[in-house]
C-alpha cells in the first residue's frame, strides 16, 4: 500500500526531472509558495522541495527536482510506478498574493520551479507579470512554455548567450528597472548569490522584494532550527516563519555559509552512492 506513488515523470533538461505524485491530502491544501519534505526510503534523509503544481480533485502534486547530490540523484532514478516513502506538507507560509500592479519574477535555474506557482497566482489575482528566467546555457532552459502561458512578458536569459538574452537575470532586471518599469513587487528564487544581487538592485529602486529562501532543513515543522536565517538582525526559522522574506532584510552571506555546512559529508555520500550505482546496485 505505498501511498506516494509516482504517476508521471518527465525530464525537463539534463538532471532536471518533473514528477507527478499521488498525495491527496497535500494536494487539497497546497498553496503557492509552499513546499513539502520528502524522504525516499528507510535510510533516506528529509529534503525540502517546492510544490510546483497540484490538483485537489485528482489528488496529485507535482515537483521539479534538480539533481545536485545523493538524494536528488537517487530520486532521478525513480520512475512511474515507484513510490517515495514519506511526503509531508504543505509546509511553510503561502506567498502573500495581493494586487501589486506590475510584478517582476526573477528566478534562476530550478528556482523557476519555485517561482512558477507564485507567478501564476499573482497573474490570476490581476497583476501584470513579467517573468525573468535565467539559465547557464540553452539545454538547461526549463519551463519556458509554462511561464509564457502565465506571464504578460517573459525574458529568458542564458549566461553564455546560447539562447534568449545573453547575461544574468540580474542584468535583465536592472535594464527593466532602468527603462522605467515600476513594479509593485519583485519575487525571486534561485541561487543565493542571485537573490542577493536582486535585493541590491531593487533596494536602489525602492521596490518591495520577496525572496524564497532555501536553507538546509530537517523536519520542516519548526522543531530543529537547522533552517534558521537572520532577517533584520533577528533569528527566524525559514520553515515556519518563511520561506518568503523581505529580501532587503535578509543576511544572504550567512545563508550562503550555512548552506555549505555539510559539503564534505555530501561529497562522501555522493561518492558512495555513485559507486554502488556503477556496480549495478
Amino acid at each position: 500500500m505505498p501511498k506516494y506513488v509516482i504517476t508521471a515523470k518527465r525530464k525537463l533538461a539534463p538532471r532536471v526531472n518533473w514528477f507527478r505524485i499521488q498525495a491527496p491530502l497535500i494536494a487539497r491544501r497546497a498553496q503557492p509558495g509552499q513546499f513539502v519534505i520528502v524522504r525516499l526510503h528507510e535510510k533516506g534523509e528529509r529534503i525540502p522541495l517546492t510544490l510546483f503544481d497540484w490538483n485537489a480533485n485528482e489528488g496529485f502534486i507535482e515537483l521539479v527536482v534538480q539533481e545536485v547530490g545523493k538524494t536528488t540523484m537517487e530520486m532521478g532514478r525513480y520512475n512511474v510506478g515507484d513510490h517515495v516513502l514519506n511526503i509531508t506538507g504543505p509546509l511553510g507560509n503561502p506567498t502573500h498574493i495581493d494586487m501589486y500592479g506590475v510584478v517582476v519574477i526573477v528566478c534562476g535555474g530550478v528556482g523557476s520551479a519555485v517561482c512558477y506557482p507564485v507567478a501564476k497566482a499573482l497573474r490570476e489575482r490581476g497583476n501584470k507579470v513579467i517573468s525573468i528566467i535565467g539559465f547557464r546555457t540553452r539545454e538547461l532552459v526549463i519551463l519556458e512554455e509554462e511561464f509564457r502561458r502565465i506571464s504578460d512578458e517573459v525574458i529568458v536569459t542564458t549566461d553564455d548567450g546560447s539562447y534568449g538574452v545573453k547575461g544574468f537575470t540580474t542584468d535583465a532586471l536592472r535594464s527593466l528597472l532602468e527603462s522605467g518599469v515600476k513594479p509593485g513587487l519583485v519575487y525571486t528564487a534561485g541561487p543565493v548569490i542571485m537573490m542577493k544581487k536582486v535585493a541590491e538592485i531593487t533596494r536602489r529602486h525602492g521596490v518591495l522584494t520577496y525572496a524564497s529562501l532555501n536553507p538546509i532543513m530537517v523536519d520542516g515543522t519548526g522543531m530543529c532550527g537547522a533552517c534558521r536565517v537572520t532577517v533584520e538582525g533577528r533569528t527566524v526559522f525559514a520553515c515556519v516563519d518563511g520561506p518568503d522574506f523581505d529580501a532587503h532584510k535578509v543576511d544572504f552571506d550567512e545563508l550562503a555559509k550555512r548552506l555549505a555546512q555539510y559539503t564534505e559529508e555530501e561529497r562522501i555520500a555522493l561518492e558512495k552512492y555513485l559507486n554502488t550505482v556503477s556496480r549495478g546496485g
Binding site: K43, G44, E45, R46, K70, T71, V218, D219, M223, C224, Q261, Y262, E265, E266, I268, A269, K272
Partner: peptide, 19 residues
C-alpha cells in the same frame, strides 16, 4: 534528531549527515 530519528551515527549508510 539527526542522530536518533535520522540515524546519522550510521552515515553514510544512512543519508543524513552530522558533524
Amino acid at each position: 534528531t539527526r542522530v536518533n530519528l535520522m540515524k546519522a551515527y550510521l552515515f553514510p549508510e544512512y543519508d543524513t549527515p552530522i558533524k
